[in-house]
Design a protein around this nucleic acid. Structure first.
Lengths: 144, 144
DNA sequence: CTCTAAATAGAAATGATTTCGTTTTAAAAT
DNA sequence: ATTTTAAAACGAAATCATTTCTATTTAGAG
């Protein structure tokens, strides 16, 4: 599996450093999204030296190359999520337990085309994210 | 028109202070979204005293009560937009000139229901925003 | 085994946003 | 109109997640 991650990094034109691999492994093992600081706290014990800026930098680079997904959180902090689904899709994120679930294809691509045509503009990107409570958290009525 | 804004504030349970009215008037006159600091710079000349924190606080309160719309910007700063369309809808925001255009109803409500039913969770909110260049900016090839 | 561009460290800076205790004000009540 | 009071505003200072900077280290190509 480390091979797999190394290949992903190589495909993204990034060196497969031990720290990057560790970040990917940790995030893949997580069922949900995590913050840079949380990842750093978990990982810094496994390396002689690991700086928080390194975690920030890698998460951002991995997000830019599409390996990780950035979560838009109401508290405006950064969170990242490892999603193995290579298809274009969107997410339902639980604000309580941080679980992330894929949501089925929506009509956004068609919507993008329509907006482009109607207004003559160019859609560069879109954000679609459902926020809420997953099944388990909804039952418990929890809200971290 | 000031009456109209005062009524909106009253309906939201907020006092119709001159500063709030000025913020609403300025934002309504804008064709696009604006940052707290930009609004503050424009408005502070019209009042003996106007603090930047006051602008932040009011924009956030107005956004919470639904009078203003918050724009999710890639640079992670706060921007607000006055949208007079009372129907639930979404926006296409130009990253260059900041114009905001309504986009037609999408299938999100149905999607929300489906996600709720399929996963047993509860969708509390959703984010849908198209980012891009409006017709004019796309032509000019501009990118502020 | 070099060599070099990319990656990392770590301290320091940044800067948007928020907090806090005080003062002022809108508007309800008299 | 005047009083009252809860809400709003002030503004200096704090916060703190995120970024920058320069020196050092390292992955991986040759």
């Amino acid at each position: 599996m480390e091979q797999r991650h190394a290949a992903v990094l190589k495909a993204a034109g990034m060196k497969a450093t031990p720290k990057r691999l560790a970040i990917l492994e940790l995030l893949e093992a997580e069922s949900g999204y995590a913050s840079p600081e949380e990842l750093w706290k978990t990982l810094k014990g496994r390396f002689d030296r690991l700086g928080l800026p390194t975690v920030y930098r890698n998460l951002e680079e991995l997000s830019e190359s599409g390996v990780l997904t950035k979560v838009i959180h109401p508290n405006r902090q950064l969170y990242y999520y490892f999603c193995s689904n290579p298809e274009h899709h969107h997410h339902f994120v639980c604000l309580s337990c941080r679980k992330v679930e894929d949501i089925p294809s929506c009509g956004i691509d068609a919507l993008e085309r329509e907006v482009s045509i109607r207004n003559g503009g160019k859609v560069l990107s879109h954000i679609l994210q459902l926020n809420g409570l997953c099944g388990g958290c909804a039952k418990k009525g929890e809200m971290a």
